[in-house]
Design a protein around this nucleic acid. Structure first.
Lengths: 140, 140
DNA sequence: TCTGGGATTGCGAACGATTTTCAGTATGAT
DNA sequence: ATCATACTGAAAATCGTTCGCAATCCCAGA
């Protein structure tokens, strides 16, 4: 069975090896933001003969092919998510590490406007909010 | 002469050594976002017997004491700036590496609102915009 | 279906940024 | 001035990541 990412790789003309197939599957099934070690851990469960170096190489390949996106969440390692058309950002629960994705068109346009006022054209950006859950009585 | 940061250190009850004095001076005089190596380079100009390890240690100390702030600009190393009361963000010129600081109260409140809607209280956040200068004819 | 050669892999070594270890040194309270 | 303690330099260790290289795999073409 062909995973979503595997299809994308074929589309981009990437050579489809066993390990790339497995890593694509792992990433297709992930709904979190695994780092390379975690991807490797999951990949090895499917096929034990996959080295961490290959995972690193494949992640870079997929990133370059714009199939996945690197997310830098401030802990020293790279995390990844499937590439999506819409810009979104991350709210990190500092108590649990849970990551909540959110998008805000207003935020996007404000950011555009700020850059424009400073005389710049945006080529990339990133916003992360670190937070803790509101107490019961503070909920909106 | 006592630099601004040195005064802050004394205030916090930190032991004032020669190297801390020099590093404090370097940081007080900096108006950019130097990384550890750059701080070390500047410190050594004032007193050559300062090791990079001490700079690393002192930066962490000052960061913990909230005297300076770590800025993660996406190039693999930590950069620093003096801690300020007001939140501000960074626009990084990807062509030259120039860093432009900006603040936006609207952005702050929007970010508060987003967190609140998601059921969170903000404990920290960061926004970086990467951009290239607008062409002449695009300037606002 | 078989083959050749370039792409890909696994391993371990190399890497850059940062932290730690440890023995020697300096600081500030007394 | 003394002394316990905190601090320092130098080198080794650590962490995430990349690289070099020989062995292996994939797939277009015969």
């Amino acid at each position: 069975m062909t995973s979503r990412l595997e299809a994308l790789c074929l589309e981009k003309g990437l050579k489809m090896t066993g390990q790339r197939r497995v890593i694509s599957q792992v990433l297709s099934e992930a709904d979190d933001h695994p780092d390379v070690e975690e991807v490797h851990r999951r990949a090895v469960r499917i096929d034990p003969r996959i080295s961490i170096a290959t995972v690193y190489r494949t992640m870079r390949l997929l990133e370059d092919a714009q199939v996945i996106e690197r997310v830098d969440l401030g802990d020293g390692r790279a995390r990844y998510e499937e590439a999506t058309a819409d810009h979104h950002h991350h709210l990190i629960d500092t108590r649990t590490g849970r990551i909540i994705e959110f998008a805000s068109p207003e935020l996007e346009s404000m950011k555009e406007r700020i850059a424009r006022e400073l005389g710049y054209k945006i080529v990339g950006h990133r916003l992360e909010i670190y937070g803790v859950p509101l107490d019961e009585d503070e909920r909106p």
